[in-house]
C-alpha cells in the first residue's frame, strides 16, 4: 500500500541523529515488547504497521509501533478485549510496583531457542524457469495495490538490470482473497541513481532492490 512507511527518497526528515554507546533497549518495556514478538499478529505484523494512521506512525517510536499493532491485532482477532486491556492498565497505574504474573516453562524456552537458531527461509527448492537472466534489462511494474507489497514507490516504472538471482522464494505480498502466494524467482536488480532520481542524482551511485518476478517486466 502507498503509505507513509514507504519513505525511500522523501525529503524533510532532517539530519540523521546518532547516539554514542546506545543501549539495545532504551527502556525495559521495549525489551518486553520485543520479547513478546513470538505471538503472531493476525493478518501480518508489517502490514498492520503500514495500516497505522500516518500521523500516528510518524509520532510513534519503533517499539511503540510494535506495541500498538500487537495489541490492536490481538483485540481484532478476539484474543483480547479492550476492556481486559483497560482493566489491567488501570490496575498497573494504581499499583506502580506490581509486576505481571509469572509463568515459567524451561522446556518451552529450549524449544523456542532451537526455533530461533534455525529460522525458516523463504527459499523453496522447486524448479521454476526464471523469466530473466543476469544482465537482462527490466522495468519495475507500475503497480499500486492496497495490500502489503515490497516494491517501493521510488522504483516503480523504473528501468534496471538484473544483477543476480536469489533462487525461488515465497512472496510476502497480500494477495486478493482466494489467490495463493506462489513462490517466484527472486532477483537482485540494479537501478542507476540517475534513473531513479533524475538530474538531482549523485554521481556514480546505484540502488539495488530485491525483486520478485511479478514485480518486473522486460524492458
Amino acid at each position: 500500500m502507498n503509505s507513509i512507511h514507504d519513505m525511500g527518497g522523501m525529503h524533510g526528515f532532517g539530519p540523521i541523529k546518532r547516539e554514542e554507546n546506545e543501549p539495545v533497549f532504551h527502556h525495559a518495556w521495549e525489551g518486553r515488547v520485543f520479547g513478546m514478538a513470538g505471538t503472531p499478529v493476525p493478518g501480518g505484523f508489517r502490514y498492520a504497521i503500514e495500516r497505522m494512521d500516518p500521523v500516528h506512525y510518524l509520532a510513534s517510536s519503533y517499539y511503540e509501533k510494535w506495541l500498538f499493532v500487537k495489541t490492536q491485532g490481538l483485540i481484532e482477532a478476539g484474543i483480547l478485549t479492550q476492556e481486559q486491556l483497560d482493566d489491567r492498565i488501570t490496575y498497573f497505574r494504581n499499583n506502580p510496583n506490581a509486576t505481571p504474573p509469572q509463568r515459567h516453562d524451561p522446556e518451552l524456552v529450549q524449544r523456542f531457542l532451537a526455533d530461533l537458531r534455525s529460522p525458516e527461509s523463504l527459499r523453496r527448492e522447486i524448479s521454476i524457469e526464471p523469466a530473466f537472466d543476469i544482465g537482462d534489462s527490466v522495468k519495475a511494474r507500475n503497480m499500486h495495490p492496497v495490500g502489503h507489497i515490497r516494491l517501493p514507490r521510488y522504483a516503480r516504472g523504473r528501468r534496471g538490470l538484473v544483477a543476480s538471482f536469489y533462487g525461488i522464494q515465497d512472496i510476502n505480498d497480500t494477495l486478493p482473497p482466494g489467490v495463493d502466494a506462489q513462490p517466484q524467482p527472486l532477483y537482485s536488480v540494479r537501478f542507476e541513481a540517475r534513473e531513479l532520481w533524475g538530474p538531482s542524482a549523485e554521481p556514480n551511485c546505484a540502488v539495488y532492490l530485491d525483486m520478485w518476478e511479478s514485480y518486473l517486466e522486460p524492458a
Binding site: H27, M36, Y63, L85, Y91, F92
Partner: peptide
Amino acid sequence: AALRTKALEALLVE
C-alpha cells in the same frame, strides 16, 4: 507505553 506493555504481558501470560 510501559503501562500498556505490562498490561499486555499480564494478559498474554494469564
